[in-house]
Design a protein around this nucleic acid. Sequence first.
DNA 1: TAATACTTGACAAGAATAGTCATATATAGT
DNA 2: ACTATATATGACTATTCTTGTCAAGTATTA
Lengths: 135, 135
Amino acid sequence: MLKISTRCRYGLLAMVELGQCYGQAPVSAQEIYKKQRVPKFYLQQLLVKLRRNGLVESIRGTRGGFVLKKDPKTIKILDIVKAVEGPVQLISCTKQSRDKCCSKIKECLTRPVWVELHEVVNRVLSERTLHDLMR
Amino acid sequence: MLKISTRCRYGLLAMVELGQCYGQAPVSAQEIYKKQRVPKFYLQQLLVKLRRNGLVESIRGTRGGFVLKKDPKTIKILDIVKAVEGPVQLISCTKQSRDKCCSKIKECLTRPVWVELHEVVNRVLSERTLHDLMR
DNA sequence: TAATACTTGACAAGAATAGTCATATATAGT
DNA sequence: ACTATATATGACTATTCTTGTCAAGTATTA
């Protein structure tokens, strides 16, 4: 059904929250999950992934929290999705991953639709930045 | 990860096969799964769904099989995906299903991306027909 | 040193995916 | 009428993914 996962939704919510406070004091995980009503421990997990992918920085201790590591204008939505979910790979037979292709790639009449879908999704997520979502 | 399911892939493969023989003799499930190397019983299930959704017609008995019920030019890829998987619903807060929305729809800063993604996917799948995939 | 906050890694329930199978029914050809 | 071929239906199952939870540890500030 191609449903957007909660991982994606919560991850982006968190990033938007951090975006709103860009340049200011760090925002704690607690502030985010209270404001956005997302599960505490689940959110923590996602924040760790965002940190490991270089999107946010964590500051430990009292008055600590998370801050964006880059300007919201330079953060693509795709970067965020990739960070919490891994690559957005609608099919395995793309140019990027030739190895996983089935052997009938050339004769495959259905492939063009899936490729187009794959490309269009990645394009939309690449064109929009975190900044575009903020007011 | 928004991966295309095998349901979708196999369903479309089957429809393309039937499309190739449109106007000719019925194609048996066996012919399809042998040619496309998809699991026999799984394919049967998908064909039943395609029939129940009015995309194909089944003919029982010897020399039976399946035929398209409509011209490939009038069958949208979206119709096929819907038949085997149900509606393509990337998020639950769309215009179509207001009821399932969260209460914060107006303040939700992340929603626009998901809506755009939802629309773009549905548009691509609606614009392409089965005929477009055939040579 | 107490309180706050992130870190790490393991664990688990539930749903979805992918696929199987037995039994029944229908039809064509002989 | 009989047989071989084909679909119909519904139940069943293994595996994976999703969506979390939790405990114990580390770091920092006031």
